[in-house]
Nucleic acid binder design. Sequence first.
DNA 1: AAATTCATGTCGTTT
DNA 2: AAACGACGTGAATTT
Lengths: 273, 273
Amino acid sequence: MFIPCGDEPHDDIRMTVNTLHRPTHRDALVHLEAAFEREDMITVFGRCTVDYDGRATSELGPGDRLVVLKPDGSILVHTDEKRTPVNWQPPGCEHTASVRDGRLRVRSTRSNPDERLDVFFERVDQCSTYAVDDRSDLELFGSEEDLRQHILSDPDILETGFEPLETERQSDAGPVDIFGEDADGNPVVVELKRRRVGPAAASQLRRYVDAFHREFGDGETIRGILVAPSVTDRAAELLDREGLEFVALDPETGERPPEANDESGPETEEEEE
Amino acid sequence: MFIPCGDEPHDDIRMTVNTLHRPTHRDALVHLEAAFEREDMITVFGRCTVDYDGRATSELGPGDRLVVLKPDGSILVHTDEKRTPVNWQPPGCEHTASVRDGRLRVRSTRSNPDERLDVFFERVDQCSTYAVDDRSDLELFGSEEDLRQHILSDPDILETGFEPLETERQSDAGPVDIFGEDADGNPVVVELKRRRVGPAAASQLRRYVDAFHREFGDGETIRGILVAPSVTDRAAELLDREGLEFVALDPETGERPPEANDESGPETEEEEE
DNA sequence: AAATTCATGTCGTTT
DNA sequence: AAACGACGTGAATTT
């Protein structure tokens, strides 16, 4: 069992990859169960059908696919297309394998919500297990958090005289990205987005501003500013109708984008109420 | 080259899987380029670093990972955790491989947006290519579309006397899921969700109702009904404040859920304006 | 190509 | 455990 694949022996003591080529279902089963035990990462190439029942329900007819089983309990069924697996199960599931009706069944289940994914192989072309050592974490730049840091370290890039007072300030509608004051002392609610914004972001900002209106009373003038690299026309109209503002900023640089649809150009005519 | 893995020959004429175990970078390179040409699906196990630059920027230090390359131009880099790849590129990218500085580089690029993903292998443990035949399409049940069909085939499950007039009806705020009339002839805007709804769904419905107010004038009474299996407290409050309604329906069955937080029970006291 | 919205979204964070 | 919002969201549909 677990004979390393290849024609000559290798000088490594510990084999990280164990591969079965065209195994019988029973051999694949033993291979899989040992890998579950070792917490290896597993790939299976083969012809299969897939059955899912959980938050939704799905059926997938026969085809050649790549199935990936991870030691964290996730499973992915990949066809030859798309970045998204055709079927899957998130981390935290229990994997089991068995042979039924002449087919290899790989089952992944979880509760809360109750979900079950069955992959039935009529043929296994290859079954590999891989002992993984990975301690590196991804470093990502250009997130909304980066945009926030840009504004906090130089608030004038948002607006001259803007003073941030609190991040993640709680409101009745949830935590607000940046809460602060403008040069005139008016409260300002700032909502950040790392990419071009549509109507949903405008509505989100509106919910926050409304919450402060309820908190502070109708007397106060509360400004809402949406910050993103650019904005769609419909979102710009919505912001306009709601008396909200837009400022164009790039999340990677924290600077005004070269020439964005920022709508904050020359004609900054606001409706006084 | 492309010697099928295993100890004895197989009776199949066409080998679907070709596997190299612990290949040199140069052998892996040749293997990869032939697979690109054949449009095979590819998996690579090995120790690598990853470099991404595009909509954002990321760096990933050394670790053992599974890299999947698909013939549609997508690439996935999977660690031993998470359903989501740690790095990736969507379909439509161009894959290339080369050997640089003693490492195998797999590069995936695209334009619009300009993005580049580099995987640098210091060690390749296994490189497999797989000729895929998959013509089956996924059949999925329990989507928002199914929920809509339930309501259209029996409108009374929404509300006695409800009459659907149009689906995807255009409005100033975008297409509305179902537009219809209630028993009294009032226009009704119906927004569907396949799962429990939060504040965003309530705001979405409000945008649609507002758009019809602008279209029909302020005289008309326009009702907005959010349909989903359940609703969060905050969203229920928001709906209440906005004068919108909620109806609990399950997307798979089209029936009232057993006992959901539907807020449409006995106390249906509305504020008249 | 841009805009909009759905998704078995997934994932992290906070309550 | 539930709620809420970000995400390099991806993917489909329509304009």
